[in-house]
Design a protein around this nucleic acid. Sequence first.
DNA 1: AGGTCGGCCTGGCAGC
DNA 2: TGCTGCCAGGCCGACC
Length: 302
Amino acid sequence: MPELPEVETIRGQLAPLVEGRRILRVELLDPRWVAPLARAEWAEAVSGRRVLKLERHGKYLDWRLEGDLHLLQHLRMSGAILCEPSPEPVHVRARLFLGPRRAPTRGGRRATADGDRKHLRIAIVDQRRFGTAQLLFGDEAADEFLRSRLGLEPFDPGFTAEHLWRITRGRTAPVKAFLLDQRRIAGVGNIYADEALFRARIHPRREAGKLTRAQCESLRQGIIEALTAGIDAKGASIDDFRHVDGVRGSFQDRFLVHRREGEPCLECGGEIVKMTVAGRGTYVCELCQPPPRKRSIRESGR
DNA sequence: AGGTCGGCCTGGCAGC
DNA sequence: TGCTGCCAGGCCGACC
Protein backbone atom coordinates (compact mmCIF):
# COMPACT_ATOMS: atom_id res chain seq x y z
CA MET A 1 0.00 0.00 0.00
CA PRO A 2 1.65 3.18 -1.08
CA GLU A 3 2.30 5.42 1.92
CA LEU A 4 4.67 8.37 2.13
CA PRO A 5 7.90 6.38 1.47
CA GLU A 6 6.39 4.50 -1.46
CA VAL A 7 4.96 7.64 -3.05
CA GLU A 8 8.24 9.46 -2.46
CA THR A 9 10.12 6.59 -4.12
CA ILE A 10 7.88 6.85 -7.17
CA ARG A 11 8.19 10.63 -7.24
CA GLY A 12 11.97 10.45 -7.06
CA GLN A 13 12.16 7.99 -9.94
CA LEU A 14 9.47 9.56 -12.09
CA ALA A 15 10.30 13.25 -11.74
CA PRO A 16 13.49 13.19 -13.85
CA LEU A 17 11.69 11.16 -16.50
CA VAL A 18 8.61 13.34 -16.90
CA GLU A 19 9.55 16.88 -15.95
CA GLY A 20 9.89 18.99 -19.07
CA ARG A 21 7.89 16.63 -21.26
CA ARG A 22 4.57 17.43 -22.83
CA ILE A 23 1.58 15.14 -22.35
CA LEU A 24 0.60 14.54 -25.95
CA ARG A 25 -2.25 12.11 -25.50
CA VAL A 26 -4.01 10.08 -22.85
CA GLU A 27 -5.98 6.84 -22.97
CA LEU A 28 -8.49 6.54 -20.18
CA LEU A 29 -9.67 2.97 -19.88
CA ASP A 30 -11.41 3.25 -16.50
CA PRO A 31 -13.80 6.19 -16.04
CA ARG A 32 -13.55 5.89 -12.26
CA TRP A 33 -9.94 6.99 -12.33
CA VAL A 34 -10.82 10.50 -13.52
CA ALA A 35 -14.20 10.93 -11.80
CA PRO A 36 -15.99 13.22 -11.25
CA LEU A 37 -14.88 14.54 -14.65
CA ALA A 38 -15.92 12.67 -17.76
CA ARG A 39 -13.06 11.04 -19.63
CA ALA A 40 -13.32 13.38 -22.61
CA GLU A 41 -13.21 16.46 -20.39
CA TRP A 42 -10.24 15.16 -18.44
CA ALA A 43 -8.35 14.21 -21.57
CA GLU A 44 -8.98 17.56 -23.17
CA ALA A 45 -7.82 19.46 -20.10
CA VAL A 46 -4.56 17.55 -19.79
CA SER A 47 -3.55 16.95 -23.39
CA GLY A 48 -0.94 19.30 -24.80
CA ARG A 49 0.33 20.51 -21.43
CA ARG A 50 3.93 20.28 -20.33
CA VAL A 51 4.82 18.72 -16.97
CA LEU A 52 6.59 21.45 -15.02
CA LYS A 53 7.22 19.59 -11.79
CA LEU A 54 6.27 16.40 -9.98
CA GLU A 55 5.73 16.93 -6.27
CA ARG A 56 4.42 14.91 -3.35
CA HIS A 57 2.09 16.06 -0.60
CA GLY A 58 1.38 13.31 1.93
CA LYS A 59 0.38 10.36 -0.22
CA TYR A 60 -0.67 12.56 -3.14
CA LEU A 61 1.42 12.97 -6.26
CA ASP A 62 1.04 16.48 -7.64
CA TRP A 63 1.70 16.71 -11.37
CA ARG A 64 2.13 20.44 -11.87
CA LEU A 65 1.20 21.11 -15.46
CA GLU A 66 1.73 24.30 -17.37
CA GLY A 67 -1.22 26.67 -17.40
CA ASP A 68 -1.71 26.38 -13.63
CA LEU A 69 -3.25 22.93 -13.71
CA HIS A 70 -2.65 20.37 -10.95
CA LEU A 71 -3.19 16.68 -11.57
CA LEU A 72 -3.48 15.27 -8.05
CA GLN A 73 -2.99 11.54 -8.23
CA HIS A 74 -3.63 9.16 -5.33
CA LEU A 75 -2.57 5.52 -5.60
CA ARG A 76 -4.72 4.34 -2.66
CA MET A 77 -4.36 0.61 -2.12
CA SER A 78 -2.93 -0.93 -5.22
CA GLY A 79 -1.90 1.79 -7.66
CA ALA A 80 1.38 1.79 -9.55
CA ILE A 81 2.91 3.90 -12.29
CA LEU A 82 4.96 1.97 -14.82
CA CYS A 83 7.20 3.53 -17.46
CA GLU A 84 7.50 1.73 -20.79
CA PRO A 85 6.20 -1.52 -19.31
CA SER A 86 6.87 -4.69 -21.22
CA PRO A 87 5.07 -6.98 -21.50
CA GLU A 88 1.83 -5.10 -21.19
CA PRO A 89 0.73 -5.27 -17.53
CA VAL A 90 -2.73 -6.33 -16.37
CA HIS A 91 -5.15 -3.92 -14.67
CA VAL A 92 -4.11 -0.92 -16.76
CA ARG A 93 -6.50 1.96 -15.99
CA ALA A 94 -4.91 4.67 -18.09
CA ARG A 95 -2.00 5.44 -20.37
CA LEU A 96 -0.17 8.72 -20.72
CA PHE A 97 1.89 9.43 -23.82
CA LEU A 98 4.57 12.06 -23.32
CA GLY A 99 6.69 13.74 -25.94
CA PRO A 100 10.49 14.14 -25.98
CA ARG A 101 12.11 15.92 -23.07
CA ARG A 102 13.61 19.32 -23.67
CA ALA A 103 16.84 20.17 -21.94
CA PRO A 104 16.67 23.37 -19.90
CA THR A 105 17.61 26.19 -22.23
CA ARG A 106 18.63 28.93 -19.85
CA GLY A 107 22.32 29.12 -19.04
CA GLY A 108 24.23 25.86 -19.13
CA ARG A 109 24.30 23.70 -22.22
CA ARG A 110 23.14 20.54 -20.50
CA ALA A 111 23.36 17.61 -22.84
CA THR A 112 20.08 15.88 -23.56
CA ALA A 113 20.25 12.19 -22.77
CA ASP A 114 19.33 9.72 -25.48
CA GLY A 115 16.18 8.61 -23.67
CA ASP A 116 15.03 12.19 -23.45
CA ARG A 117 14.63 12.41 -27.21
CA LYS A 118 12.29 9.44 -27.28
CA HIS A 119 8.63 9.50 -26.40
CA LEU A 120 7.59 8.09 -23.06
CA ARG A 121 4.66 5.77 -22.46
CA ILE A 122 3.34 5.55 -18.92
CA ALA A 123 0.80 2.99 -17.69
CA ILE A 124 -1.34 3.61 -14.63
CA VAL A 125 -2.00 0.19 -13.12
CA ASP A 126 -4.46 -0.40 -10.29
CA GLN A 127 -5.83 -3.80 -9.44
CA ARG A 128 -8.37 -2.64 -6.88
CA ARG A 129 -9.38 0.50 -8.72
CA PHE A 130 -9.38 2.83 -5.72
CA GLY A 131 -6.84 5.18 -7.25
CA THR A 132 -7.88 8.64 -8.42
CA ALA A 133 -6.57 11.45 -10.61
CA GLN A 134 -8.31 14.70 -9.83
CA LEU A 135 -7.75 17.91 -11.75
CA LEU A 136 -7.56 21.19 -9.90
CA PHE A 137 -7.43 24.41 -11.83
CA GLY A 138 -5.19 27.00 -10.19
CA ASP A 139 -2.65 26.88 -7.37
CA GLU A 140 -5.18 28.29 -4.97
CA ALA A 141 -7.67 25.49 -5.59
CA ALA A 142 -4.93 22.88 -5.23
CA ASP A 143 -3.61 24.45 -2.02
CA GLU A 144 -7.06 24.62 -0.56
CA PHE A 145 -7.76 21.01 -1.51
CA LEU A 146 -4.56 19.76 0.08
CA ARG A 147 -4.70 22.02 3.11
CA SER A 148 -8.16 20.78 4.03
CA ARG A 149 -7.03 17.16 3.87
CA LEU A 150 -3.44 17.05 5.07
CA GLY A 151 -1.71 17.92 8.31
CA LEU A 152 2.01 18.63 8.59
CA GLU A 153 4.50 16.40 6.83
CA PRO A 154 6.63 14.50 9.36
CA PHE A 155 9.74 15.90 7.65
CA ASP A 156 8.51 19.48 8.02
CA PRO A 157 10.72 21.41 10.47
CA GLY A 158 7.55 22.37 12.31
CA PHE A 159 6.82 18.73 13.10
CA THR A 160 8.25 18.81 16.62
CA ALA A 161 7.42 16.96 19.83
CA GLU A 162 5.73 20.14 21.00
CA HIS A 163 3.58 20.25 17.85
CA LEU A 164 2.62 16.60 18.31
CA TRP A 165 1.79 17.20 21.94
CA ARG A 166 -0.39 20.16 21.05
CA ILE A 167 -2.40 18.47 18.30
CA THR A 168 -3.03 15.35 20.37
CA ARG A 169 -4.55 17.26 23.32
CA GLY A 170 -8.19 16.42 23.83
CA ARG A 171 -8.08 13.53 21.35
CA THR A 172 -9.66 10.44 22.84
CA ALA A 173 -9.13 8.17 19.83
CA PRO A 174 -6.40 5.53 20.07
CA VAL A 175 -3.04 6.90 18.98
CA LYS A 176 -3.00 4.58 15.98
CA ALA A 177 -6.28 6.05 14.68
CA PHE A 178 -4.74 9.47 15.23
CA LEU A 179 -1.66 8.57 13.16
CA LEU A 180 -3.80 7.28 10.31
CA ASP A 181 -5.79 10.53 10.12
CA GLN A 182 -4.16 12.42 7.26
CA ARG A 183 -5.58 15.73 8.50
CA ARG A 184 -3.37 15.43 11.60
CA ILE A 185 -0.19 14.07 10.05
CA ALA A 186 0.33 13.61 6.32
CA GLY A 187 1.64 10.40 4.85
CA VAL A 188 1.51 7.77 7.60
CA GLY A 189 -0.51 4.66 6.75
CA ASN A 190 -1.07 1.30 8.36
CA ILE A 191 2.44 -0.10 7.88
CA TYR A 192 4.39 2.90 9.10
CA ALA A 193 1.98 3.56 11.97
CA ASP A 194 2.75 0.10 13.38
CA GLU A 195 6.46 0.50 12.81
CA ALA A 196 6.57 4.00 14.30
CA LEU A 197 4.61 3.01 17.41
CA PHE A 198 6.89 0.04 18.00
CA ARG A 199 9.98 2.22 17.70
CA ALA A 200 8.41 4.67 20.15
CA ARG A 201 7.44 1.82 22.52
CA ILE A 202 3.86 3.08 22.54
CA HIS A 203 0.85 0.77 22.42
CA PRO A 204 -1.45 1.55 19.47
CA ARG A 205 -4.53 1.53 21.70
CA ARG A 206 -3.18 4.23 23.98
CA GLU A 207 -5.37 7.33 23.99
CA ALA A 208 -3.74 10.01 21.83
CA GLY A 209 -4.60 12.83 24.21
CA LYS A 210 -2.88 11.06 27.11
CA LEU A 211 0.56 10.85 25.55
CA THR A 212 3.20 12.52 27.70
CA ARG A 213 5.60 15.06 26.25
CA ALA A 214 8.33 12.44 26.42
CA GLN A 215 6.15 10.00 24.48
CA CYS A 216 5.43 12.67 21.89
CA GLU A 217 9.15 13.06 21.38
CA SER A 218 9.60 9.27 21.10
CA LEU A 219 6.72 9.11 18.66
CA ARG A 220 8.07 11.94 16.53
CA GLN A 221 11.39 10.12 16.34
CA GLY A 222 9.69 6.78 15.68
CA ILE A 223 7.68 8.22 12.80
CA ILE A 224 10.70 9.84 11.23
CA GLU A 225 12.89 6.76 11.67
CA ALA A 226 10.27 4.43 10.24
CA LEU A 227 9.60 6.67 7.23
CA THR A 228 13.31 7.22 6.61
CA ALA A 229 13.98 3.48 6.75
CA GLY A 230 11.12 2.98 4.29
CA ILE A 231 12.49 5.55 1.88
CA ASP A 232 16.01 4.09 2.16
CA ALA A 233 14.59 0.66 1.27
CA LYS A 234 12.68 2.23 -1.65
CA GLY A 235 9.34 1.35 -0.10
CA ALA A 236 7.56 -1.82 0.94
CA SER A 237 6.04 -4.19 -1.62
CA ILE A 238 3.58 -6.44 0.18
CA ASP A 239 1.70 -7.24 -2.98
CA ASP A 240 1.12 -4.54 -5.56
CA PHE A 241 3.60 -1.76 -4.97
CA ARG A 242 6.15 -1.44 -7.76
CA HIS A 243 8.78 1.06 -8.77
CA VAL A 244 8.33 2.82 -12.12
CA ASP A 245 10.50 0.10 -13.71
CA GLY A 246 8.42 -2.67 -12.15
CA VAL A 247 10.95 -3.57 -9.44
CA ARG A 248 9.75 -4.21 -5.89
CA GLY A 249 10.75 -2.28 -2.80
CA SER A 250 12.52 -4.09 0.03
CA PHE A 251 11.19 -2.54 3.23
CA GLN A 252 8.82 -5.50 3.76
CA ASP A 253 11.93 -7.52 4.66
CA ARG A 254 12.81 -5.06 7.41
CA PHE A 255 9.51 -4.78 9.24
CA LEU A 256 10.00 -4.86 12.99
CA VAL A 257 6.40 -5.79 13.82
CA HIS A 258 4.10 -5.28 10.84
CA ARG A 259 2.84 -8.60 9.39
CA ARG A 260 5.03 -10.53 11.85
CA GLU A 261 2.26 -12.17 13.90
CA GLY A 262 3.59 -15.07 15.99
CA GLU A 263 7.21 -14.21 15.28
CA PRO A 264 9.64 -13.08 17.99
CA CYS A 265 10.16 -9.42 18.72
CA LEU A 266 13.58 -8.44 17.42
CA GLU A 267 14.11 -6.37 20.56
CA CYS A 268 12.99 -8.64 23.42
CA GLY A 269 12.10 -11.98 21.89
CA GLY A 270 8.46 -11.71 22.97
CA GLU A 271 5.76 -12.83 20.58
CA ILE A 272 4.31 -10.28 18.16
CA VAL A 273 0.53 -10.29 18.37
CA LYS A 274 -2.06 -9.11 15.88
CA MET A 275 -5.13 -7.14 16.90
CA THR A 276 -7.61 -4.73 15.38
CA VAL A 277 -7.23 -1.04 16.18
CA ALA A 278 -9.13 1.67 14.32
CA GLY A 279 -10.50 -1.09 12.13
CA ARG A 280 -7.04 -2.00 10.87
CA GLY A 281 -4.87 -5.05 11.31
CA THR A 282 -2.33 -3.96 13.91
CA TYR A 283 0.87 -5.67 15.05
CA VAL A 284 2.33 -5.15 18.51
CA CYS A 285 4.96 -6.46 20.90
CA GLU A 286 3.05 -6.03 24.14
CA LEU A 287 6.23 -6.42 26.20
CA CYS A 288 7.91 -3.49 24.45
CA GLN A 289 4.61 -1.63 24.03
CA PRO A 290 2.69 -2.15 27.28
CA PRO A 291 -1.07 -1.95 26.82
CA PRO A 292 -3.00 0.87 28.52
CA ARG A 293 -4.39 -0.69 31.73
CA LYS A 294 -7.51 -2.54 30.77
CA ARG A 295 -6.72 -5.89 29.31
CA SER A 296 -10.34 -6.76 28.73
CA ILE A 297 -9.83 -7.44 25.08
CA ARG A 298 -7.76 -10.59 25.09
CA GLU A 299 -5.90 -11.67 22.05
CA SER A 300 -6.59 -15.22 21.06
CA GLY A 301 -3.17 -15.35 19.46
CA ARG A 302 -2.40 -17.12 16.20
C1' DA B 1 -17.62 18.04 16.53
C1' DG B 2 -14.95 14.11 17.28
C1' DG B 3 -15.14 9.19 16.68
C1' DT B 4 -16.63 5.08 14.27
C1' DC B 5 -18.23 2.39 10.56
C1' DG B 6 -19.77 1.01 5.91
C1' DG B 7 -18.84 1.33 0.99
C1' DC B 8 -15.82 1.29 -2.77
C1' DC B 9 -12.97 -2.98 -5.27
C1' DT B 10 -10.53 -7.25 -6.28
C1' DG B 11 -7.57 -11.36 -5.52
C1' DG B 12 -6.70 -14.73 -2.38
C1' DC B 13 -7.91 -17.95 0.77
C1' DA B 14 -10.71 -20.47 4.41
C1' DG B 15 -14.46 -23.38 4.79
C1' DC B 16 -17.72 -26.45 3.23
C1' DT C 1 -12.74 -29.95 -6.88
C1' DG C 2 -15.33 -25.94 -7.03
C1' DC C 3 -18.17 -22.72 -5.17
C1' DT C 4 -19.28 -19.10 -1.69
C1' DG C 5 -18.16 -15.62 1.26
C1' DC C 6 -15.07 -13.03 3.86
C1' DC C 7 -11.02 -10.13 4.39
C1' DA C 8 -7.60 -6.31 3.59
C1' DG C 9 -7.19 -1.33 3.50
C1' DG C 10 -7.05 4.67 2.21
C1' DC C 11 -10.31 7.73 2.11
C1' DC C 12 -14.94 9.65 2.19
C1' DG C 13 -19.50 10.29 3.67
C1' DA C 14 -23.06 8.97 6.88
C1' DC C 15 -24.25 8.45 11.35
C1' DC C 16 -24.06 8.77 16.52
